[in-house]
């Protein structure tokens, strides 16, 4: 019996990683945003494999529908001239390779620490799972799960207001030659 779900998962994982590499090494910023959207879709499909179809919806409609448009605007509104920085000829290449190998070794050993997927790997002494205990003690009792969505809404509203304030132009500094709509002295 071929586990076609596993095959699909591996194909999707390869696709996701390839598109993620495409984000870094594509010619223009908009292309790299396109690759980012494709990566986000791949990650959304990973959520489907983890039985979290609601998060699939969130990921698609908020991330690759809403945030991606913001990122596309960011790439397009700032006409960035591509630098001729050649990564493989610079003196960054050795540190990056060493850091990457170290990171992969570190994370790989962490992944290897996971025992075979049977039984509960996070059990603590009193029978609760570690994550459960953590959330009970720190998250739920102090903040309460019900406050997540209002908290997020307030945070998002604050961020949007702040970004609008940031992006608004100070008319005095940049556009001094801009004609005034309502001249102050109209007596002559």
């Amino acid at each position: 019996m071929v586990d076609y779900l596993l095959i699909l998962f591996v194909l999707n994982a390869i696709y996701t990683v390839l598109m993620g590499i495409g984000v870094l090494y594509s010619r223009t910023v908009i292309r790299s945003a396109l690759f980012l959207i494709l990566t986000l879709i791949g990650v959304a499909n990973v959520f489907l494999f983890a039985n979290s179809e609601f998060l699939w919806v969130i990921q698609l409609s908020v991330y690759s529908g809403g945030i991606a448009v913001l990122l596309l605007f960011a790439g397009r509104l700032t006409s960035y001239t591509e630098d001729n920085f050649e990564f493989f000829n610079s003196n960054l290449v050795m540190p990056v390779i060493v850091a990457g190998v170290l990171l992969l070794v570190l994370l790989g050993t962490l992944v290897a620490q996971i025992p075979a997927s049977t039984g509960n790997i996070f059990t603590t002494n009193n029978g609760n799972t570690l994550l459960e205990q953590f959330f009970h003690n720190i998250w739920q009792e102090n903040f309460g799960l019900a406050f997540i969505l209002p908290f997020l809404s307030a945070l998002f509203l604050a961020a949007l207001l702040g970004s609008v304030k940031l992006a608004m132009s100070d008319d005095s500094d940049d556009y001094e030659e801009k004609p005034k709509l309502y001249p102050e002295e109209t007596t002559t």
Partner: peptide, 16 residues
């Protein structure tokens, strides 16, 4: 996801 959305909005403003 929500943090990423807020971050993208602020980053767009900062970039501009």
């Amino acid at each position: 996801v929500a943090i990423a959305a807020a971050e993208a909005a602020i980053a767009l403003a900062i970039f501009i």
